[in-house]
Design a binder for these strands. Structure first.
Length: 729
RNA sequence: GGGCGAUUAGCUCAGUUGGUUAGAGCAUCUAGCUUACACCUAGAGGGCCGGGGGUUCGAGUCCCUCAUCGCCCACCA
């Protein structure tokens, strides 16, 4: 084919139109198969023994829609992936979606109730699961196609869903293995109970919210005790004070006294425990071990009785006497009235500000309860695959402390350590139905933990596992574990985990825990934490503020390339990213700028004759030097995860150096009479263009590929820019 | 209560290990249809780098301290 002397592609006569290019290009990329590293090897663009680069996509909620947080994540990861692929690495980016068990189930339950006035119990487990599964399946295409619209070069042939068969196998295997090692145990401990969702939730899912309530001072025998929760106090028969509190020296540990209480006289026992703070109130407290984590600990230490006062739905039990059967919210004022009448109320602070535990998913207040659940022991020494014996906590800390895993930005190391230090045993069982069912079987008080039913008469535990239990396996369950697949051997540990800093505890830490114990490898070598996307003024985006910028609208208006750049430039790891429509518009203009640079170069080099070249002038040489030193700088920033600088430098080189200076000064040469000097410069310009396209491709894949597709054949070393070699310098 | 971070141009932020007159985008103002681009070009204005103290030949950059804002964690009944 002879492109010389022919007019350049007439598309260049119009401004660049993302709309006319992006979808078609993505389709072409997908059809080429190059998102799949196996195809890259097959077609010879990647060496079979090349170094690997792998990332797992933090799986979005299967029923979700794309928001700016996703967009930022996709942009960042795709930049890393495309750059490494162009470097010639065997590059794999694995897509997937998450069942988001609680969220999805309650959404479907809500809809069923609205339409059919039926609860999950009316439908039964099987039917509910069928409906939830159906809903998840039918809505997954939305998030998948939206993910594609960002230009994400994910290998869809390896798509994984947290509840598919392969992942099921991995989760079951992990559970059994951890149980056999003594890491998973069943026990009656205090847990966070969500009375609305009727399930336990983990410590990390708790959000402390400030609330103002009356604070009551009650007369408890000779003591004064304080509380915001009179409704829990019925069974309080232990009174706790600090062993060194001189005010109460006359009372001895274990001493019993008679006190007048809500429903009549009771026998109270004095407990001396250092948990009682002398500075707080009277320094004396009564405890409710069944409904308070601190109280539970005290009771455990001294072997005290524990009694349930409130049931799973927030209703008072018979211990509450005349108040039994009432909901705690309604009962509270009535209880206080009664106590007033008994002369038990000493004082009331009407406006006491304190924190209450709520479910971070927004379902409401958490009620601590003692329940028999499955836990992961974090302080128990167990044997790791490398033969060493240590606790999960120790191993988790060591991965970062010893440099096996590097977190960017570094300051999150401390936050990570702090979390580990405060970590308590992880409650992993949930009382919902949508999820991986606990592989435990009961019969006549006996328990067996195994994947298949032990036989007739054995009932499987109805509970399912915390969604983060399966998410913790994600780096290797997506690669085929527990089978020793080629993928697993090739791509694990993964190179980078890129995710929001808000999820470091839920996910990052859990992945490290699971991976180090189960397979003896860290799940990833680097952690890159991106910030939260905020509006142009740095405010959180929220519906109520009306400042949400929808990525899909922005793609429609300005193109995915513009969104990608606007989400990366200025987004240092760990820092929140302010995003305004102005910023996006600015980068859309840049895409068009690149389009016009290409048009200029192509139209002015269409008569290029390679044979007529002169040696490079000093200025020609300088232009190329600048080009390649920009490449080197961008590369250096990319290697060190400074994407925000890399993107900015690439942008500046192309606009302020190439367009503003090189192109301008080339005009007289291109119009000049010296044919040799002219074709030398033409060669230089072509080189600048093709290298610039490569330089920008990771950041703005669509417009760069769109130009590449319109280059004359002799300028393209590969069919797709996506798999062109990153420029050497 | 504990910890972390921020404070630089009107706004949002860079400024990588301390080194010449402190940068960008947007916004503002001025001038331009110069045959790549008005989604553009040329230019301008605008900053005691939060306050105070210290280390240094030299600090936006390191140390101390104060102030304000933000975030995370936490079992004060």
């Amino acid at each position: 084919m002879n492109d010389k002397n022919t007019a350049i592609n007439e598309d260049f006569l119009k401004p660049y139109s993302p709309k006319d290019n992006e979808e078609a290009l993505y389709k072409k990329w997908e059809e080429s198969g190059y998102f799949n590293p196996d195809v890259c090897i097959e077609k010879g663009v990647t060496a079979p023994d090349a170094e690997t680069f792998s990332i797992v996509l933090p799986p979005p909620n299967v029923t979700g829609v794309l928001h700016m947080g996703h967009a930022a994540m996709l942009a960042t990861e795709d930049i890393l992936v495309r750059y490494n692929r162009m470097q010639g690495k065997r590059t794999l980016w694995i897509p997937g979606t998450d069942s988001a068990a609680i969220a999805t189930q309650s959404k479907v339950e809500g809809e069923i109730y609205k339409k059919e006035k039926k609860t999950r119990h009316d439908l039964g487990r099987e039917e509910l699961l069928r409906r939830v599964g159906e809903f998840a399946e039918s809505s997954k295409d939305t998030i998948i196609s939206q993910t594609k619209s960002m230009g994400s070069s994910l290998d869809w042939s390896r798509y994984a869903f947290t509840l598919d068969e392969q992942r099921y196998k991995a989760v079951m295997t992990a559970f059994v293995k951890m149980y056999e090692a003594g890491l998973i145990y069943r026990g009656a401990r205090i847990v966070n109970w969500d009375p609305n969702l009727q399930t336990t939730v983990s410590d990390d899912e708790i959000e402390h919210v400030e609330q103002t309530d009356p604070f009551y001072y009650f007369k408890y025998g000779p003591f004064t005790i304080g509380t915001v929760r009179p409704e829990t106090k019925f069974g309080d028969k232990y009174v706790v004070m600090h062993p060194d509190d001189v005010r109460y020296a006359e009372y001895k540990h274990g001493q019993q006294i008679e006190v007048e209480w809500i429903n009549g006289p009771i026998t109270a026992t004095i407990i001396k425990d250092e948990a009682a703070d002398r500075e707080v109130g009277s320094g004396v407290m009564t405890i409710t071990p069944w409904h308070s984590a601190v109280d539970f600990e005290i009771a455990e230490r001294h072997g005290l009785d524990k009694e349930q006062v409130i049931d799973e739905r927030g209703i008072l039990l018979p211990i509450a006497g005349e108040f039994a059967g009432q909901h705690i919210k309604k009962a509270r004022p009535a209880i206080v009235e009664k106590m007033k009448a008994q002369g038990l109320v000493e004082k009331i602070d009407e406006k006491y500000v304190h924190n209450v535990s709520t479910n971070s998913r927004g379902s409401g207040t958490i009620e601590p309860q003692i329940k028999e659940q499955w836990f992961v022991a974090v302080n128990k020494a167990v044997q790791f695959p490398d033969g060493r014996t240590m606790t999960l906590k120790e191993r988790m800390r060591e991965t970062v402390e010893g440099g096996e895993i590097a977190i960017a930005p570094e300051r999150f190391n401390k936050i990570y350590y702090r979390w580990i230090d405060n970590l308590r045993d992880w409650c992993i069982s949930r009382q919902i139905w949508y999820g991986h069912r606990v592989p435990a079987w009961f019969k006549d008080g006996e328990v067996k933990v195994q994947i298949e039913s032990p036989g007739k008469g054995w009932e499987q535990d109805p509970d399912t596992l915390d969604t983060w239990f399966s998410s913790g396996l994600w780096t290797f369950s997506t690669l085929g574990w527990p089978e020793e697949t080629d993928d697993f051997k090739t791509y694990h540990p993964t190179s980078v985990l890129e995710t929001g800093y808000d999820i470091i505890f839920f996910w990052v830490a859990r992945m490290i825990l699971m991976s180090t114990f189960l397979i003896g490898q860290v799940p990833f070598k680097n952690v890159y934490l991106h910030g939260m996307v905020r509006d142009g003024k740095g405010q959180k985006m929220s519906k109520s503020k009306g400042n949400i910028i929808n990525p899909l609208d922005m793609i429609e208006k300005y193109g995915a390339d513009a969104i990608r750049l606007s989400l990366v430039v200025g987004a240092a790891p760990g820092n929140d990213v302010p995003l305004s429509e102005d910023k996006i518009r600015g980068y859309k203009n840049f895409a068009n700028k690149l389009w016009n640079i290409s048009r200029f170069v192509l139209s002015n080099t269409s008569d290029y004759d390679g044979a007529a070249k002169a040696p490079l002038s000093p200025r020609d040489q300088e232009i190329l030097n600048q080009l390649y030193s920009s490449v080197a700088e961008v590369e250096n920033d990319l290697k060190n995860f400074r994407l925000y600088l890399a993107a900015e430098k690439a942008y500046h080189y192309v606009w302020d150096e190439l367009a503003a200076k090189v192109l301008e000064e080339s005009k007289p040469i291109l119009n000049g009479d010296d044919a040799k000097v002219k074709s030398t410069r033409q060669a230089v310009l072509r080189e600048c263009l093709s290298v610039s396209l490569k330089l920008l491709h990771p950041f703005m894949p669509f417009v760069t590929e769109a130009v590449w597709q319109r280059l004359p054949e002799e300028m393209k070393e590969t069919e797709f820019l996506m798999v062109a070699k990153w420029p050497a310098h």
